[in-house]
Amino acid sequence: MVKVTLTVNNVKYELDVPPLERLIDTLRYRLGFTSVKEGCGRGECGSCIVLVNGNPVHSCLALTSRLDGAEITTLEGLAPAGKMHAIQVAYIEARGVQCGFCTPSFIMVTKALLDRVSDPDDKTIREWHSSVLCRCGSYPYYFEAVKRAAKYLKEGKVYFDEREVREKYHLKVLAR
């Protein structure tokens, strides 16, 4: 067993893990971050991508035992409690979500991209989005989501009130 300290979504965890435990299993089954999906376990589908120290990483090909001291962000930690990140709002508004199995990774890849390039062109977006396979074929909508997110971030809109977004796009509490 290996002792590691991980910071996941700004919370510190001290863990004792077998040397070959994959980061995806730590995140999903040990810590309960189910936004991280396993589609292949081989670095192909990209549905397990999380940010490790700001870089997009396939959590199915990463060993937790090697990540002592790392800062990990999953979709659950993209925004503080009660908020939604502009990228998430952009993905809602771009209307591309179908089965949604791939979406968490596309969002994380978008975060990594926009952290580096604030105004990516079409080619760059396609290049980064090649990290994740979407069998429902939502790609063009996800390209659009990146642009929308870039615009929000440029306008300084990073976080949105979660309740407002929910009421606008999902379930409403009805006034008396």
């Binding site: 089954y29 936004s35 809602i92 949604g100």
Partner: peptide
């Protein structure tokens, strides 16, 4: 109309909605 689908928010917030997620 272009309506945002009913489960979009659950999906873009990474909720445990797929079968294997429920294992938790």
């Amino acid at each position: 109309k272009n309506v945002v689908r009913w489960d979009a928010i659950a999906k873009i917030t990474g909720q445990p909605i797929f079968t294997a997620d429920l294992l938790k």
